[in-house]
Design a protein around this nucleic acid. Sequence first.
DNA 1: ACAACATATGAATGATTGTTCATATGTTCA
DNA 2: TGAACATATGAACAATCATTCATATGTTGT
Lengths: 110, 110
Amino acid sequence: MAHEDHQDIVREIKENMPDADTLFELADFFKVFGDSTRIRIMCALFEKELSVCCIADIVGMEQSTVSHQLRVLRQENLVKVRREGKQSYYSLEDEHIQKIFEMGLEHILE
Amino acid sequence: MAHEDHQDIVREIKENMPDADTLFELADFFKVFGDSTRIRIMCALFEKELSVCCIADIVGMEQSTVSHQLRVLRQENLVKVRREGKQSYYSLEDEHIQKIFEMGLEHILE
DNA sequence: ACAACATATGAATGATTGTTCATATGTTCA
DNA sequence: TGAACATATGAACAATCATTCATATGTTGT
């Protein structure tokens, strides 16, 4: 790391970077997309709002597992809940999700 | 899970879902964005191609750590390398990355 | 109030992963 | 060829995380 303009480049890029907190939050946000169970849950919710047991059936996992993962999605404001009788109906909170999905798909299908 | 049209909904949504392999790949792809070190590396590379030691300086981590993470980014085709003398210069492989970033930022800043 | 159902949550476990240290590989220059 | 530098990689460790089981909470109808 001793060539002529190394320090200049480092300083310049450091200055132009978003602050560390923002990037940390950003990583946390994308972390949610990095699990196939959550991906499948979100994918199912593209169609319509669904109850927890419906989702569990669709993704083929325990109700408990799905509940835990829905909490993760809720904490990152990716889904919202609506109580109706005994059931909780979940739906997507944000229209960015579909676009992020599409871009991911474009990338892996290249 | 015993109300009238539960099974119909489950079947319908299952049919319209992308196949499991694709969604698994998609999760692996987003997993790469789910770490703040990798996020910061990619962010630094938005400006220009950089050598490994430059990146290590910018993100403030060991050269070894950065090398390991660059390998992860390479495996998912997010960066490419160019050897020049003793140094390896990394740059972004794909223009989707910036857009995915922007959408993530839009989400967390809402 | 009680039974039946739907959902949420805490604890425990196994698996995955990010980081570091030590070292190997690759490259240049003398 | 050997020294100096840049990068890559394997092993080890600590930390994080997804899943499951058991159980608690919440809701409806009798």
